[in-house]
Amino acid sequence: MAEDQRRTISRRDLLKGVGAAGAAAILPGKVDEGSAQPASPGAGTDPGRARSFAEVPRPRRLENLTADEADTLEAIMARLIPADDLGPGAVEAGALNYLDRALGGFLAGEREEYGLNLAALDRYCLSSRGAPFVELSTTDQDSVLIDLEGGSATGSGAGFTGSSASFFAMVKGHTWQGMFGDPYYGGNAGFIGWDLLRYPGVRLGVSAADQQRLEAGELLPERRSAYDSEMFEKATAMQRAQGGVEHGD
């Protein structure tokens, strides 16, 4: 045991982390060629002219949430980042898919909190507005979300596990992660989130010329996941410890 632990790693082994081809591909000189081209058809379109929603995948294969919970969460997400004249929103980006997967992985510790607070939310909506959240008008939904956000729903007796503001912040945080995070985790479908921010995308290197193009508004957005590159380990340390990964969670 002690002997195993004392085995050292040579510098050569360290450098094996990336192959020669991989190293060459990320030298700044090479970056210009790749980044001057859009990664895929449709990338680089003005998000103001929204893609047809039909083009955007809307996965609904639940792994952890119940169908009712998913409906309520999706209705919340639809108000937090709505689809509107500026383009699609959190629902279209599959933020729910991100959250559903994460609740079986990194966010597993928050699964119960979601269940209890979603139930409290519907009790609160029924008591205050006469119907569960999904059946309210969008104005009443927004009014409810404002009450959650400000903590006003806390003292309603509906049974939120803490302040309604904490629950709101949790849902909002995870919605933002599902909207703006790497698509590897199941959200940001069609790079909707990155288009909204006008984020020019994940690149492995950005030359001075790229930066100048960006500043001149001439750098076409790159639309790919960090893990489209083979050079990166997909599993996190925790996933590795648990043995294998099916997908990002």
């Binding site: 008591s127 205050s128 507005r129 009443d140 009014s143 404002i146 009450d147 006003s152 729903a153 309603s156």
Partner: peptide, 11 residues
């Protein structure tokens, strides 16, 4: 009245 509070419609 409740409707002017978050226990109602909060209008």
């Amino acid at each position: 009245p409740r409707d002017y509070t978050p226990d109602g419609r909060n209008i």
